[in-house]
Design a binder for these strands. Structure first.
Lengths: 172, 172
DNA sequence: GAGATATGTCAACAACGCTGACGTAAATAA
DNA sequence: TTATTTACGTCAGCGTTGTTGACATATCTC
């Protein structure tokens, strides 16, 4: 049914990047990969009455205990009103706790509860299965290369911030 | 501010994949990379009064002229009502044309108009810039490896279908 | 002619983004 | 100390994009 799709041959040598011709394959693979990647946790989230927005909040609070509202907003790139809606539910259902800041008492330091951690872990393990399976019969250095590639897809201005968060790099 | 995050050391040898420990880094990098990747076209889409749903439809119709509704639904994994809403707008604004099928006259064969193709190309080039930049100073075989990785993130049942669509493979 | 299939459409609703406005408490600057 | 800024909470309303359920039409297949 699909007509023959003109295939873009690789450029002759590595340096010659044809940025003028769309890289349809990677654009589309990123769409399909992400589509399936985020779909894994959906069934479980449903059981708790949560959606993907709850998942993202729970994940980052679990990863970084003591996260503030401002930091979370910076990660998620949504408005505080949008965040507040899902965060309120996570707190009411006792998956997340909000504690007053110690040095700055205006801040709210977010922590997962034990049941919050359990759910976060359950969801992370689910996604890890897919990631591990994808990596399983690629070259040994595949993970390192894919990691570097994904980092370089991120906005340059935000890269340092993300690396600090993901890899725990403290030094500049 | 972030406490030291326990780093998962790579397993000793390739086969020993610790699927029980979440691969936090790749989970998060996928989130950040995709977040920024899909944000590029937003400003342009706004000018046309379109959203990300319109973009996805336009993209796949541009890539695969003559795509049917059923095939498009299978790609996007949404309901026909959701699709119809955005597709109707794309047709009304003359970015996409719907033609009656030839062999099966119940089908609608979707095609982009010239202005539809222009927009699709403009958006694809934008996303390609980011992809090319990310690839630009990685090893020459990075693209091939990242491609294989992304393919393997897709649901196994759907992989063949996607490969046919993305790479134009006709033979099984 | 009966039934299955491909599509279109109406209505209602949910999740999750957004803007704008306003309020409070606490830190900081003047 | 007073004024301003900052961090957060909240109310109200709205837009996009997903959902379910029901029903209609044209066309293909048996």
């Amino acid at each position: 049914m699909p007509d023959a799709i003109p295939v873009l041959r690789s450029p002759r040598l590595g340096a010659d990047i044809r940025a003028d011709h769309p890289a349809y394959d990677l654009i589309e693979l990123l769409f399909f990969a992400y589509r399936d990647f985020v779909s894994d946790p959906d069934r479980i989230l449903d059981e708790y009455g949560f959606g993907r927005a709850h998942h993202r909040v729970l994940h980052f609070v679990d990863r970084q205990p003591g996260l503030t509202i401002a930091e979370l907003l910076d990660i998620l790139r949504i408005t505080k009103q949008s965040l507040n809606r899902v965060l309120k539910e996570l707190i009411e259902k006792r998956f997340i706790e909000s504690r007053m800041g110690t040095s700055d008492r205006r801040q709210r330091l977010l922590h997962v509860t034990p049941q919050g951690h359990d759910l976060a872990l359950k969801l992370a393990k689910l996604q890890t299965k897919r990631i591990a399976r994808a990596l399983s019969d690629l070259e040994p250095d595949a993970k390192e290369l894919v990691t570097r590639y994904l980092v370089r897809l991120i906005d340059p201005d935000d890269r340092e911030h993300v690396e600090r968060l993901v890899f725990g790099k403290q030094e500049v």
